[in-house]
Design a protein around this nucleic acid. Structure first.
Lengths: 153, 153
DNA sequence: GAATTATAGTTTCATTTGAAACTAATTCAA
DNA sequence: TTGAATTAGTTTCAAATGAAACTATAATTC
């Protein structure tokens, strides 16, 4: 039997995307957690509540693709630090409505420009056209990935 | 002060790449670990040793962007299952040279086609041109990401 | 309207991961 | 040389993560 294509890891798409994502996440995590005492899950919750105040934990989970345990922990931590406040939904007393405190708002306001700046840095070597292509590609890949995530591989 | 752009997480590049990578990794991890009793770090080591027999752990770590602890653990696990064998480098007795056992080779031979098939599935909605674009974009992004990983963000 | 089922969210426990300390061998430098 | 610094790799300990069990409330169904 002839030897098959030996799978070069460097050119294997799942591997490449994973390394890229990891590099980016680690960079951001380092920056946020050092300076703002904020880990990635907390940052995601913070950003989400900035855009969608009075979301429930479940809604936050859906919007961020985090699981509910991760959200629960991130919310606890944010509340301990006074960055998020909660209230019980009177219409459904299982639900907890979450929103940023003034401190949380202030923190978000400090981070957002840094996040945008980092994103711009990542994109700065891309032409206008390449950015549009990236958009398309990410969308298509994401769609394929989530299609296949349910099936056997 | 006017309210700044509120950072939509869904369009924030680091977030999108992270979700994509996560979805892909989870899918693969599910498939490999179920069927072959092989987790992602082990899979990476396996694939690397397939291409580069008699690498040291450190070389594997470099090629896979894993840290040496992760490599050490993956190697132990692979050796326990008889998929990797090691020998001491006589020229530098700190180094351990790693290679696949026949079982390891056989396992790799079974997985490689599946890995390629999954990759093809991911790419199948892309045109030939888009695949080339993806190549370019991943390369540029990776370069920017690793540039910035050393600096403050 | 009582019993069952479903949902929101938390807690617990086991596994994974990462950082730092450690062991062993090698290289460098006085 | 021989002692200090470096490098390969492992172990240990603490933190992060995920799955499953659990609590509390709401919705459904008989």
């Amino acid at each position: 039997m002839a030897k098959q294509t030996p799978l070069k890891l460097d050119s294997f798409l799942p591997y490449r995307i994973s390394v890229l994502a990891n590099t980016i996440s680690t960079t951001l995590a380092g920056a946020y957690s050092q300076r703002f005492d904020l880990r990635i899950p907390e940052w995601r919750v913070l950003a989400t509540l900035g855009g969608y105040p009075d979301s429930s934990a479940r809604e936050v989970a859906q919007r961020t693709a985090m699981d509910k345990v991760a959200v629960s922990r991130a919310v606890s931590s944010l509340m301990e630090r006074g960055r998020v406040v909660s209230s019980i939904d009177t219409l459904d007393r299982r639900r907890t409505l979450l929103r940023l405190s003034p401190d949380g708002e202030a923190l978000l306001a400090r981070i957002v420009p840094l996040a945008h700046a980092y994103e711009s840095r990542l994109l700065e070597t891309l032409t206008r056209q390449e950015r549009l292509q990236l958009e398309t590609l990410l969308e298509k890949l994401m769609q394929q990935a989530s299609m296949n995530s349910s099936k056997e591989v």
